[in-house]
Structures are given as C-alpha cells and as structure tokens.
C-alpha cells in the first residue's frame, strides 16, 4: 500500500480509495506509512535518542542517518531509526455536525475525510509517543477521549472515530471555549471542521486557545461541490442542518456564492494567520497527505 516514488506513478493516494479500505486503523497506517516513506526528508531527525530499528535506505532519507558501520559490514545502506520522546499533548477536535455529512456522489463525505485525517494524525502521534485526545462536537461536545500516550489508547481512539454518527447543527465556538478552559498544559489543538458557522465566532473560539498559549492547526474541510458549486439545473437546496430550503438557479447564483466563499476563506486566512493559527484549507478531493504535510510543518515548528 505504501507508495514508493517511481517516475510516472501517482505519488499520493486517492481519499476515495483509502475510504474503501477496511478498518480505520488500516487506513491510518496506510496513509501514514506511505506518507512517511515518500517524504524526502525524514521528519524524525533528532527527535529521539532511543534506537528503534534499522530500515533500508530509501531515496529521500537524510544521508546523515545512514549507519555507515552496517554498510561496512553488509555493503548495504541502512538507516538507523529512533523513537522520539516528547511530552506533547495533542487535542484532535473533529466536527460531527450534520453538514459534515455532505459528500459528492461517489466521493468521501467531509466526515469520512475528517475521520481518516484524525485517525492518521492520531496514528502518527502515537508513534511519536505524544498524548492524543479526541473530542467530537456539533453544537456541543458529543464525545471526548482524554489525552493519553498509552499503547492501547490509539485503539480506543480509532474505535471512537469509527463509531461516530452525524450530529446536529454546527456551533464551533461553544466547544472550543469549553475545551480551551479545560486544557491545563501547553499543547497542540487540531481542529477538523467545515467551519460552517459564524466566522467571527469561530475565530473568537480559536483566539481563546491562542490566548492560553496553545498551538492551533485548523483543517478547514470543504467538498469540491462546495468549492466550485458545479450544479447546473435549477434546484431546491435543502440545508442539511436545519432543513430549510432555497430555490436557486445555479448559473445565476454561482458567482455570488463563490465570491462569498472566497470572502470567508480570506477572512479565515487573514484572521487566523494574524493570530498564529496554522490554517489549512482542505479540499476533500485532494489526497490526505497534503493535510498531513501541513501538520508536520506545524509539528516541526513546535519542536
């Protein structure tokens, strides 16, 4: 499953393909291992002092990590791998409101994408011995797993993710404020949501974390339909959360819709960027590796 980089071959996995894999654990492993293998530069350099294993050199691995002694003995390149040790507490916040259930026909829903993203991140963190917490919310907190770095915690987290059901209306700010108050240690908050809420309130909730010194990564998930509004026929658009209907002719409303979307995205970029939040816009048709890459860039900064 891991994607080895070969010329002319797709480097990333299609989220739709990943979604068809069996358990969430398998999905997470597939994503993370492939992702890590494909990176040109290992993210773990200098992370840990505890030896973990040897691994055959892969193009892209840091040359400094090659164990030249082993090379001398076996005439093969092996990379010495270490387990890192940190005391990071990572809080995964996953939006399970009804709007996350939207997905283009034949594609993944935002929730499925969010589940895979959260699982992958949890898997990664578990590998790094970070304590991971999972909180799901709609207009309030739906479930919450406290942070833990214990080996069995990942399974519990993945089971929780696997059992998620769509909730009600989105209210991002409310659970953010509750969580912000509950976090005692400095850590990292990863918010996975479609942010279909009042942008001011969302920003306000995230500001609460920044105020407490917590690093924040926001994965703003949007379905390609929501990004391009590709509909053609006059249709009734029913709100997935509140059920009210709007009659619209797509060709007439498209430009206004897109400009409003652009305005909101610009707002998030500007406001969240200004307060140091790592904002990542994620189109759910894009490979998950892109999102993971965002995480790592943040994680590196944190280290």
């Amino acid at each position: 499953m891991a994607s080895q980089t070969r010329p002319g071959e797709l480097r990333f996995l299609d989220p739709a393909v990943i979604a068809r894999l069996g358990t969430l654990e398998l999905k997470a492993r597939t994503i993370v291992e492939g992702f890590l293998t494909g990176l040109h530069r290992s993210p773990f350099k200098g992370f840990s002092v505890e030896f973990a294993e040897y691994r055959q050199y892969m193009p892209g691995d840091d040359l400094s990590s090659i164990d030249w002694k082993v090379y001398a003995r076996s005439d093969r390149y092996y990379v010495k791998k270490f387990e890192e040790e940190t005391n990071l507490q990572c809080y995964l916040l996953l939006d399970v409101s009804a709007s996350m259930g939207y997905g283009r026909a034949g594609g993944t829903t935002k929730l499925e994408y969010g589940q895979m993203l959260a699982a992958s991140l949890a898997y990664l963190m578990q590998r790094q011995r970070d304590a991971v917490s999972l909180t799901t919310f709609d207009d309030g907190i739906v479930s919450m797993l406290p942070p833990s770095a214990r080996p069995g915690h990942l399974r519990a987290l993945l089971v929780t993710l696997d059992r998620l059901r769509l909730g009600k209306k989105t209210d991002v700010s409310k659970p953010l404020h509750v969580l912000a108050d509950g976090i005692s240690r400095r850590g990292m908050v990863v918010l996975i949501s479609d942010l279909l809420d009042d942008p001011e309130r969302v920003v306000d909730g995230l500001r609460h974390f920044r105020f407490r010194g917590t690093d924040v990564v926001v994965f703003h998930l949007m379905d390609p339909d929501e990004v391009t509004f590709p509909f053609e026929r006059a249709s009734k658009f029913r709100d997935m959360e509140v059920g009210d209907e709007l009659m619209a002719v797509p060709s007439v409303v498209r430009s206004a819709y897109l400009s409003e979307l652009e305005r909101v995205l610009e707002f998030y970029k500007r406001e969240l960027g200004s307060m140091g939040v790592d904002y990542r816009f994620v189109n759910t048709s894009e490979p998950l590796e892109f999102a993971l890459m965002s995480y790592f860039s943040n994680r590196s900064r944190f280290m």
């Binding site: 996350m100 379905d223 509909f231 009734k236 658009f237 709100d239 409303v253 498209r254």
Partner: peptide
C-alpha cells in the same frame, strides 16, 4: 425541481437566491 441536500447553505444564502 430536484432537491439537493447541501451543507454550505451559509454561503448560498448570501447569494441572491430565491426563497
């Protein structure tokens, strides 16, 4: 007319749609 369950109604409401 076909009914489309849609999530990003927040942005659609800002457009000159017809109730």
């Amino acid at each position: 007319e076909p009914v489309i369950e849609f999530a990003a109604m927040r942005y659609l409401r800002q457009a000159p749609v017809e109730h």
